[in-house]
Amino acid sequence: MIKGLFRISPGFEDVMPAEYKELVTTGPYGREVGVSDLGTFKELIEEHPLCAGCAESLALRLILASLPNPEDTVIVGSTGCSSLAFSQVAVHNIHSLFGNQNAVATGLKRALRLRFPDKVKDVLVIAGDGATVDIGLDMVMQSWFRRELITTIMLDNEVYANTGGQESGMSPQGAVLNMAPLGKKFPKVALPEIAREAGCVYVATISPDLPRRLGKVVRRAILVAREIGPSYVQIFCPCPTNFKFRSAEVLQKIRERQKEGTFQVREYVSPEAEAYLAGLEGAKQREEQ
């Protein structure tokens, strides 16, 4: 972001709505803030229309709080619940179509690299499980094969939630959902494993149950995608509406699944990415000391 992009023209300060004034004075652009600073700065996401208790909304809030450089981040989304909040997000973001997010991100990333060769522009894909693993799988994987320098985040609520609760490739085997009236016939697609085979240098599974860890994972995923290669983060976001549990039970649900072993927090870092991150994180630690 160019300097001054976020300065109100003199004379218009008074008429600017409050939320914008807050973004200008206490927003996260150009500042070192993270998940642990939530509550001390104006967040990038404004009020949104997601259901109460929605784990995706929680994940989104955490992701947005973890962006290493929100002032130079462009997000590509896809149709589904996750996109409903995006028009309220204070970074440039693209919706486009259902499933084409990684192809759009490919073109965008390359275009921004052409136009701003001396700047890092982080291109981040945030989409649901249907968009990532079903309808958009080819484009997701090909962006990995091509080693596009983008980060792909899946908000995995294990269901097509926005269209009314249909089984997706990420639904657990046996789950009875719309369009799987006799229960899902095949296991959850092993996308983290696929991501690794397909060329991602950083792969992690996480949930909003562990906010700081999530923040770190997102940050690492974005950093490695600047230099080393594509990264993939799968965030488990159980859906109270379609799986019919109370919205207050979301985090409990995550813990139950963790206990069952059907959701695990994992991280894979390629040796090259490991070295790169160690360099960055070491430098940061030294700085702090």
Binding site: D134, N162, T163, G164, M179, P181, L182
Partner: peptide
């Protein structure tokens, strides 16, 4: 495959499959 405003129709067709009116039914990928 789900898409508004079609989904309900194909949910109900799925129910017909569960009840034996159809011999096969599944959700495709796109």
């Amino acid at each position: 495959y789900p898409i508004t405003p079609q989904s309900e129709s194909m949910h109900l067709v799925g129910d017909l499959f569960a009840q034996g009116y159809l011999k096969d039914y599944y959700r495709g990928e796109n």
